[in-house]
């Protein structure tokens, strides 16, 4: 039996009195590409953010390579790990955001280098060459010294992906990375993700691009009202949905 890269056990998350995640269970192997689909408010983005500890969660466990994320048991009590430890664990995963969130006061290369220098303690020259390598990979080698304000949305998102992936994470998380982009810029970002998938990168993507999810994923998870509604092979999921909920969702979504 292969060891699970990611294991989510009975994950629960509340905002005040609203329960957003009501016990999510899921496992993921090295090299898998999983798309998470579902209507807004179903908890798919929240789940992604919990994996990166951008959100605290109240119940359940998240394990990466068997290592519990964010919380530990101490004398039978569940306590949040130290900020330093959480920061280290966050670097196990890379995340790309809907709004890119590039640092506007730094060049594309500096954006990528920041984590390498501060977290990986790389020397500046080395960090620069790693940054250049990854910017090349996302097709922006020529733009290394441009500031985010000088780049198009698609280019910014590619820099953001390079920034995350340069940290050499075990797992990449993509949170609706194309939702804020003009339609003509979506393609270039999806192509970058496809290339990463072809390289065997483990990825978890929250997306509204059903066609893309269908093409790139090895597995699809359909989130519905805080739980996993259905999961499986994309061909089965999209072409022969087993639950009525999923069939309904696919009808209203753009997948045709």
């Amino acid at each position: 039996m292969t060891k699970n890269l990611l294991e989510i056990q009975a994950l629960r998350k509340r905002y005040g009195s609203v329960e957003v995640l009501k016990g999510v269970d899921c496992t993921m192997q090295q090299g898998e590409v999983i798309s998470i689909i579902g209507s807004s408010g179903s908890g798919k983005t929240t789940m992604l953010r919990c994996i990166n500890m951008l959100e605290d969660f109240q119940g359940g466990r998240i394990l990466i390579d068997g290592e519990p994320i964010g919380y530990e048991e101490r004398n039978g009590v569940r306590v949040r790990k130290s900020e330093k430890e959480i920061a280290r664990q966050r670097a196990l995963t890379g995340m790309a955001f809907q709004q890119f969130n590039l640092f506007p006061h730094m060049t594309a290369a500096s954006n990528v280098m920041l984590g390498l220098i501060k977290v990986k303690k790389m020397a500046r020259d080395e960090a620069r060459s790693v940054a250049e390598k990854w910017l090349d990979r996302v097709g922006l080698g020529q733009r290394a010294d441009h500031y985010p304000g000088q780049l198009s949305g698609g280019q910014q998102q590619r820099v953001a992906i390079a920034r995350a992936i340069a940290m050499n994470p075990r797992l990449m998380l993509f949170d609706e990375v194309t939702s804020a982009l003009d339609p003509e810029l979506v393609g270039e970002v999806l192509q970058v993700i496809k290339d990463l998938a072809a390289d065997g990168m483990s990825m978890l993507l929250v997306t509204h691009e059903m066609r893309f999810a269908f093409e790139v994923s090895s597995r699809v998870i359909f989130m519905n009202q805080g739980v996993i509604g259905e999961e499986g092979d994309p061909k089965v999921m999209f072409l022969k949905p087993q639950t009525e909920r999923l069939a309904e969702f696919l009808k209203t979504s753009s997948f045709a």
Partner: peptide, 11 residues
Amino acid sequence: GQTEAAKAIGL
């Protein structure tokens, strides 16, 4: 988002 992006790379 700036803080989140910084956290996400492990700062």
